[in-house]
Nucleic acid binder design. Structure first.
Length: 822
RNA sequence: GCCGGAGUGGCGGAAUCGGUAGACGCGCACGACUCAAAAUCGUGUUCCCUCGGGAGUGAGAGUUCAAGUCUCUCCUCCGGCACCA
């Protein structure tokens, strides 16, 4: 009577052994063939690990295991992105201090993570909320400050008057407070920014060499939003204000008849001061600002403006341009002032609405249509075939061809503009008016001037004595300890910065801190950084494409420029796992559709569960959760186990590490399939195509199960092939075979291309594209012979008789295609 | 609106270079074992059919000896950006 495989017992046994013998601990210094594999570290919420975590972590681990079996020293650390809003909200609700809830959540999460059986090197774990970590978050701030990449600026935050607190954008959706429903207002607050914009071009250029999904690279490219154009020197008439106006479509500059300025532009109040329209303009501005803040602003519905009464002083020699305030102008792109013409859809619509004169200068070749443009019947824009009428020097030339010449003309002939580049990327606002984050290491002198906290005072501890219930002041401002500490070190009247840093700051550099092994002296040891960075494989969700994944790149480039590291990109290769939904919806606590892996692990074990997640479909596709197929994978595991039991019972165990017998003792059929499977699995795992790797192994099993007996070498190969996918089972089989050491330290099997060649192949015969016959032929049959065979085939004869054979094609070892007429 | 990606049996999916569409698994049906059930094992399983075949990869056209795969038009779903002059 054969035993059945009992995963829970076996898996626990190996997890203990791995830990005890440090199977996954990496000597960072000694490693000679390093491979750095990371997953995006999780947020330690109070909920249990869910299916999504497993779907992300388990395949990433299988990939790492495969790399290890290629002989590399694979470093896969794990950590916790522990600062952030949920813990603070939980504290507001329950009074439990975030430090306590997070500490206990991390503990539970580690226990759960260990059940997956991943190769995590727990010695190098990081937790961003611990002072030994966030001292480096603060250190990073100081470096940014020192290198002039950090600055302060007023900006609006979402504010709830009833809760007396700042709200994150997600909490202020639809313009009302998530908690109490009160209308959210925009309150100006001074915020710290980091100059990511300085790195826009580098961040764009660096993408070319990254092995990242094209989609993600495209998203970053669009996010950075490089645009080329001209800055036109301009000034306001009878008013002391000079500025530049950005134009990326300068071909039709002669058509520009008015200018628009963003409602938020700081000069507006001065511009209308004492004028008779002052009140009207200020009211307009307030109304538009509010509108923009409280809803998803739709410019089609809110194309609004008001005349300032001022004029831009003849920028093109075509006359002064009336300056309007327009709802659609963006303040933080260009200079917040734009010249407008008849050749832009939105400008055209705006001018029509407010009866502003237009002067088209470009027309289609068709006379009738050109007449319509002259009569302003519709807007004619961006047509490469459009023919310019003005300026005279360009009359008759096509819009699509003059861009470069026009820029040259504006710059060198008229001398009113300069060629320039603009980016959409905005500087990174890193201030959060929140408690549970890394305190910004800044203090203010009695005059209110900011000073960086000297490095010797790091970590600048997050105070413990705060009230979580919102009271209108920032949580840190209420800490007596923090105020006392500040005065004690810096002197009377000095005050601390009370904002904390965006959690994306914490996660922008954790890859380096994994390599630092908790060092308090060095951010990261230089030789280790040089050896291990950039990260060879990074796995995580696509939702971070334009946040974490761009911030981490920026911080890496900045630290390189500061001289602390050598790498200029953090993540060489990136893969996004798909999203697992339940009943079509994203799993969330509020929807109550979160699937816990626990009951499945109890019943089937980690190996079955992780393989099922991989078998569901392509890793990058995700899908809707459904457990009906898990049985199939369980059967696979049980069948593998009994295959080994049966054969070992028949043939006995192997001895020691070298159980080498030749890999050709089995039947031709088994050998061919075995080598084909090695090939398939070896190709699929690096491509993260676990579903097809697994189905190849199932096909192999279907064949070897039918054999009377299998060679040791075949069994050994099968155990090795499943080791990345089912690590516990593979270790157990390795032990049963009599192998020494861990299977993960064995060499990955290689296939012999000669073994893949079979003596005969099946060739099909197509007549006019339809399959009419099948023939088994010797692999090396000549084209002549196979065509003759095909034509002689009884079934083919039926279709050929009495018809003219027009064409014969033979595709080696695949098919014969015959074309007949009549 | 703009930019991406995807649509294949009852279900998850495979087909990597234009070459037998539906691998592998689930489910289902029948059979073996069993008093019986579960488990396990075996056989079958795209649809239609007059058993000769015919149709078939979101729809329609095109290129080709041959199209899930290439080209064009359209539909649906998913993701991203939303006033960037």
């Amino acid at each position: 009577m054969l035993n059945t495989y009992s995963p829970t017992k076996v898996e626990k046994k190996w997890q203990k052994k791995w830990q005890k013998e440090g199977a996954y601990t990496v000597d960072l210094e000694k490693a000679t063939d390093p491979f750095f594999s990371m997953v995006m570290f999780p947020y330690p919420s109070g909920d249990k690990l869910h299916v999504g975590h497993w779907y992300n972590f388990a395949p990433a681990d299988s990939y790492a295991r495969f790399m290890r079996m290629q002989g590399k020293q694979v470093f896969t650390p794990m950590g916790f992105d522990a600062f952030g809003l949920p813990a603070e909200n939980y504290a507001i609700k329950t009074g439990v201090h975030p430090d306590d809830s997070i500490t206990s959540n991390v503990e539970t999460m580690i226990t759960q993570l260990k059940r997956i059986g991943c190769m995590y090197d727990w010695d190098k774990m990081v937790n961003t909320s611990k002072s030994e970590y966030y001292r480096w978050t603060q250190w990073l701030f100081l470096q940014m400050y020192k290198n002039d990449l950090a600055y302060k600026k007023d900006a609006n935050v979402n504010w709830c008057n009833s809760c007396q607190t700042v709200l994150a954008n997600e909490q202020a959706q639809d313009g009302s407070c998530e908690r109490c429903g009160t209308e959210v207002i925009q309150k100006p607050m001074t915020q710290w920014y980091w100059k990511i914009k300085n790195y826009a071009q580098q961040l764009l250029d660096g993408l070319d060499d990254l092995d990242w999904p094209e989609k993600t690279k495209l998203m970053q490219r669009n996010w950075i939003g490089r645009s080329e154009g001209v800055n036109i020197k301009s000034k306001i008439k009878d008013f002391d204000y000079e500025f530049e106006v950005y134009d990326s479509v300068p071909q039709t500059f002669k058509a520009q008849t008015f200018s628009v300025i963003a409602p938020e532009h700081p000069i507006i109040p001065e511009l209308v001061k004492g004028k008779k329209n002052e009140k009207e303009v200020l009211e307009f501005i307030e109304r538009i600002k509010k509108l923009k803040a409280t809803e998803k602003y739709n410019f089609d519905e809110h194309l609004e403006g008001i005349f300032t009464g001022a004029y831009v002083d003849d920028p093109y020699g075509t006359g002064d341009l009336p300056l309007w305030i327009a709802s659609f102008v963006v303040m933080d792109y260009g200079t917040g002032i734009v010249h407008c013409s008849a050749h832009d859809e939105r400008d055209f619509a705006f001018a029509k609405k407010y009866d502003i004169p237009l002067n088209p200068v470009m027309f289609p070749a068709d006379k009738k249509e050109a007449e319509k443009i002259k009569n302003l019947e519709y807007c004619y824009a961006k047509d490469p075939e459009g023919i310019l009428e003005q300026p005279e020097e360009f009359a008759g030339r096509k819009w699509g061809e003059v861009r470069g010449d026009i820029i040259d003309y504006l710059q060198n002939k008229m001398k009113i503009g300069e060629e320039t580049v603009q980016y959409r990327l905005r500087d990174w606002s890193i201030s959060r008016q929140r408690y549970w984050g890394a305190p910004i290491p800044i203090v203010y002198d009695p005059e209110g001037k900011p000073h960086p906290i000297p490095e010797e005072h790091l970590p600048w501890e997050l105070p413990h004595d705060v009230e979580f219930k919102p009271t209108g002041t920032a949580p840190l401002a209420q800490s007596k300890e923090l105020i006392k500490r500040t005065e004690k070190i810096f002197g009377k009247g000095w005050t601390p910065e009370v904002d904390t840093m965006d959690t994306f700051v914490c996660s922008s550099f954790y890859q380096f801190r994994y390599l630092a092994e908790g060092s308090t002296k060095e951010f990261v040891p230089k030789d280790i950084e040089k050896k291990w960075m950039p990260v060879d494989m990074y796995v995580g969700g696509p939702e971070h494409a334009c946040m974490h994944l761009i911030y981490a790149r920026f911080v890496t480039k900045a630290l390189r420029d500061f001289g602390f590291i050598k790498a200029d990109e953090p993540f060489k290769k990136l893969v996004h796992q798909g999203l697992i939904t339940n009943q079509g919806a994203k799993m969330s606590k509020s929807k109550g559709n979160v699937v816990s892996p626990d009951e499945f692990i109890d019943q089937y074990g980690s190996d079955v569960f992780r393989m099922y997640l991989m078998f569901m479909g392509p890793f990058t596709a995700g899908g809707d959760w459904n457990d009906t197929g898990i049985k199939g994978v369980d059967r696979f595991v049980q069948r593998i186990f009994s295959l080994f039991e049966t054969n070992i019972a028949k043939n006995g165990k192997g001895k020691g590490k070298s159980m080498n017998t030749k890999l050709d003792q089995d039947s031709k059929e088994v050998n061919t399939k075995l080598h084909a499977t090695i090939k398939k699995v070896s190709e699929d795992i690096p491509r993260m195509q676990f579903n097809t790797a697994l189905s190849a192994l199932m096909e192999l099993l279907n064949i070897v199960e039918k054999q009377d007996s299998l060679s040791f070498e075949a069994l050994k190969t099968i155990a090795l092939l499943i080791a990345p996918l089912a690590p516990h089972l593979a270790e157990e089989l390795w032990g049963q075979l009599g192998g020494e050491g861990f299977i993960i330290d064995q060499k990955w099997p290689e296939y012999d291309p000669k073994q893949l060649v079979t003596d005969t192949v099946t060739v099909v015969v197509q007549i006019n594209g339809k399959v009419r016959a099948e023939m088994v032929v010797p692999t090396e049959i000549s084209e002549e012979d196979v065509l003759k065979m095909a034509k002689d085939h009884e079934n083919v004869q039926k279709y050929l008789s009495g018809k003219e054979l027009k064409k014969e094609i033979y595709i080696k070892s695949k098919l014969v295609s015959l074309v007949v007429a009549g």
